[in-house]
Amino acid sequence: MFALEKLSRAEKLRMMEALWRDLTADAAELPPSAWHDDALRHAEVEQAKGSAQMMDWAEAKSLLRRRAQS
């Protein structure tokens, strides 16, 4: 077994992404979490009010990666 704390943040993120790709390969069998339903409802409300800030998914991933590396 390897020591997780010895991995860099970038390595940990790559590992998480690989795990997520594997878990979502059969997404139909992955039940949604209650927090996810709440987040989707909140996003729908914000969009209906016109206060949602939309962003391209590639741009959002890039932003999240930059935040995680700082």
Rank of each mutant, 00 (worst) to 15 (best):
M1N: 13
M1Y: 09
F2G: 15
A3H: 05
A3R: 10
E5W: 03
E5P: 01
K6N: 12
K6E: 13
K6C: 04
K6Q: 11
L7V: 03
L7G: 06
L7H: 07
S8N: 01
S8Q: 02
R9I: 10
R9Q: 13
R9E: 09
A10W: 02
A10H: 05
A10C: 06
A10R: 10
E11F: 03
E11R: 01
E11C: 03
K12N: 02
K12Q: 10
L13H: 02
L13D: 00
L13W: 03
M15V: 10
M15K: 10
M16N: 13
M16Q: 12
M16I: 14
M16G: 13
M16R: 12
E17N: 11
E17R: 09
L19D: 09
L19I: 11
L19Q: 07
L19Y: 06
W20M: 14
R21G: 06
R21H: 11
R21C: 06
D22I: 07
D22A: 12
D22W: 10
D22C: 11
T24W: 03
T24N: 05
A25F: 05
A25N: 08
A25M: 09
D26E: 05
D26A: 00
D26S: 02
A27S: 06
A28N: 03
A28E: 04
A28Q: 04
A28H: 02
E29C: 06
E29S: 15
E29P: 01
L30V: 00
L30P: 01
L30I: 01
P31N: 04
P31H: 00
P32W: 00
P32M: 02
P32H: 00
P32E: 04
S33F: 08
S33M: 14
S33R: 14
S33E: 15
A34D: 15
W35P: 06
H36S: 12
H36W: 13
D38A: 09
A39G: 08
A39W: 07
L40H: 08
L40W: 06
H42K: 15
H42C: 09
E44D: 07
E44K: 04
E44M: 05
V45F: 06
V45K: 14
E46N: 07
E46H: 04
E46G: 03
Q47C: 08
Q47V: 06
A48W: 03
A48D: 02
K49E: 15
G50M: 00
S51M: 11
S51D: 14
S51C: 12
A52I: 04
A52R: 05
Q53G: 11
M54G: 10
M54S: 15
M54F: 10
M55K: 05
D56Y: 04
D56M: 05
W57H: 12
W57T: 15
A58H: 14
A58M: 14
A58K: 15
E59H: 05
E59D: 08
E59I: 00
E59L: 03
A60H: 13
K61G: 09
K61Y: 10
S62H: 12
L63R: 10
L64E: 12
L64C: 07
L64K: 12
R65W: 05
R65Y: 07
R65D: 11
R66Y: 08
R66W: 05
R66A: 15
R67N: 13
A68Q: 09
Q69F: 10
Q69P: 03
Q69S: 10
S70Q: 14
